[in-house]
Write a protein that binds this DNA or RNA. Structure first.
Lengths: 140, 140
DNA sequence: GCGTATAGTTAGTTAGGCTAACTAATTAAA
DNA sequence: TTTAATTAGTTAGCCTAACTAACTATACGC
């Protein structure tokens, strides 16, 4: 006998791989993976961030950020600039990076919509809110 | 400008690592990881399965199933028995495995509840349904 | 009976994280 | 003012949890 909580997490986990694979196939054209895309989107939405800020926002460790940024710098989508002191570095999108992000966003849109086909806007919003609440509960 | 679909998937992805880490900490006592736990739960809920069935249910490939099962056999939580012909093997819980699954389920319950604290039962059910719909849309 | 299909395994690769231990720069304290 | 502790980022090496390609053994269709 599963509780509704357990059922929810069951379903949550089950969806992960198929979803990530779907996204990664779409991102292949841009030589990106979903983790790198997540960082690009963060920079687009909220502007330049330090490595530590990125780690905090994405709930990953600093060395993982280093690797993500290295790859995106290689691709020319982001660049690092001096921060408030000599230790700090700010990561920001390049001009090309900004273009690419918009292009990818447009490219991914139909895939997202199809994945959520038949689900009402209201339910999507509720589900999003539920996920946000869990995030807040877990990372307290 | 993010659409509500993109916002949803954003939030979905953001939650994954913290959630899996939380579960894995709880499962550490039983020398299990969340992927192995997912398989144990499948066997508990729906009885014995062949390797191919497991692969289909969990949306993973056969070699991944082999590895999962090997580990769980080592731990004595599952066993394989002859199937309908000489090729097929059925994976099923051992007596000890069944006990452990129930113990873990009870152990995880408060963690799950706390993660969903402040979320109404109705919203949890809606979110679960949304995830199930996406799964169906993606794996069509 | 022979070619094809199916069940499972083995070997090797990958994404995407992690920790431990490090350097360089800054801040606090003696 | 020197010294200790903290902070930002990097490097090296590890792990989970998947993947593909290629294999063996068995079963099925014609």
């Amino acid at each position: 006998m599963l509780t509704i909580e357990q059922e929810f997490f069951n379903q949550y986990r089950l969806m992960y791989r198929p979803f990530i694979n779907l996204i990664n196939v779409q991102l292949g054209k841009y030589q990106l993976y979903s983790s790198q895309w997540a960082l690009l989107r963060l920079l687009m939405d909220k502007g330049p961030h330090t490595f530590v800020d990125i780690a905090n926002f994405m709930f990953i460790e600093k060395p993982s950020v280093t690797r993500l940024v290295q790859k995106l710098v290689e691709l020319g989508y982001v660049e690092t600039v001096a921060g408030r002191d000599k230790r700090e570095k700010l990561v920001q999108l390049t001009a090309n990076g900004e273009e690419i992000v918009q292009e990818i966003q447009a490219h991914l849109k139909p895939t997202m919509e199809q994945a959520l086909a038949g689900v009402s806007e209201r339910d999507i919003e509720i589900a999003t809110q539920v996920l946000a609440n869990i995030c807040a509960n877990i990372n307290r």
